Simulated assay, not measured.
Amino acid sequence: MRLSVPRVPNFVLSTSTSTPRTSHSEAVERIAEFIKPGNVTVLTGAGVSVDSGIRAYRGHDGRYMNPNYKPILYHELMDETMKGHAFRLRSYFGYPPVRDALPNTTHHALAALQHAGIVSHLITQNVDRLHHKALLNQAPSNWLPSKLTPSILELHGTLSNVCCNHGHVIDRDSFQDMISISNPKWVTFAKEIEQSGIPLKTNPDGDVDLGQFGFSHSDFQIPECAQCLKENRRNTIIKPQVIFFGETIPLSIKEASYNAIDSSDRLLIVGTTLATYSAFRLLKRALETHKDVAVLNLGPTRADGILAAQKIEHHSGLVLRDAAKSVWYVVAASIDAPH
């Protein structure tokens, strides 16, 4: 099986150096003006989580930061041989840094805009649940996490659950504990790595490259799916509930993403090159349905050169924070004004 990893087209990369960076004040003004009318759908990518310590695949030039890096492919992860075991081991080590990451300024600014009713839908390509954490942090004390589901659509799934190849879903933290119990050697190794200070390069899908340590993974044990055992089936083919390269996005998620675009008045794209077609087609959908579109990203994107999509070349964090403040004051003033 041959699969190509999504990339930003070369003709976009070749012109990226000519795009001037927008000043902070201009970026804030343009974003505030764009979102002020409300009913905004926001589409985010890996760039918004970089400030939380999660590496993006691509740098500011739009190219892979490690040109030799090969992300986990779906058919490799689901392989029943030792090859598949190796990828599941990488995922076991890669999950804790993502799980423990905290929301940054971008996540909190977007959460504030959601609570203010300005952002009506948030679609994220990220699987780190940081948007959920930020939204819940700002929510009233009587809110339950289940209330977050309608307002955030995870386009590529989530690391917070795992599922077997028969569709049974397991809580990820519980599954990590099950793996740890079955693999005391690897638990010890993880503690040694943590104490050594050697950084593990974790990618947005929770994958970490362990090749630098040069050890055998043949004794790594994957717990069996308990639900499959109840169905008289032994099964250790279990993966994070993430859409990996080579895997198809469920039709229900695709339709929900289109509905979010169709029901909003404008689309704000933040921190993504739009290299994956699942994200790029949402830009196309917005343009086909005559929505206003703005892109806030530092570096080239597949939207560059599309005149109907205004590009703001800037880092998202402080810009969204200040734009959210500006718009919030306008909303508050209109509420307090005499009628």
Rank of each mutant, 00 (worst) to 15 (best):
I152Y: 00
T248Q: 07
Y277T: 14
K83D: 12
G246P: 01
I31E: 04
S216W: 04
Q195P: 07
K291E: 05
F189C: 15
Q114N: 06
R88Y: 03
T248M: 04
A112E: 14
A86V: 13
I335T: 10
T236D: 15
A116W: 01
A260Y: 05
F215V: 02
S182P: 00
R129P: 10
S18T: 09
A46T: 01
N235F: 08
S252P: 11
H168I: 08
P67V: 15
P97M: 05
N137R: 08
L73A: 14
Q125N: 13
V327G: 06
L122R: 09
A337F: 08
R30T: 00
N183T: 03
D61S: 10
G167E: 07
S49M: 04
V8D: 07
Q176G: 08
T248Y: 02
Y64Q: 15
A279P: 10
T273C: 07
R99Y: 09
C225H: 00
L282I: 08
K83S: 11
T158M: 02
T248D: 06
A286F: 06
T188C: 14
K230Y: 08
Q195T: 15
G167H: 05
L110I: 06
E313V: 11
P338V: 05
I179Q: 10
S316C: 13
M82L: 12
D61P: 06
G211V: 01
I312L: 11
G317W: 05
L102S: 11
F34D: 04
G53W: 00
N126E: 11
G246D: 03
T41Q: 03
G197Y: 05
Q212I: 15
L298F: 11
G214M: 03
S264Q: 07
T81W: 05
P145Q: 08
H75M: 10
H156Y: 12
A27K: 00
H60A: 13
V8I: 10
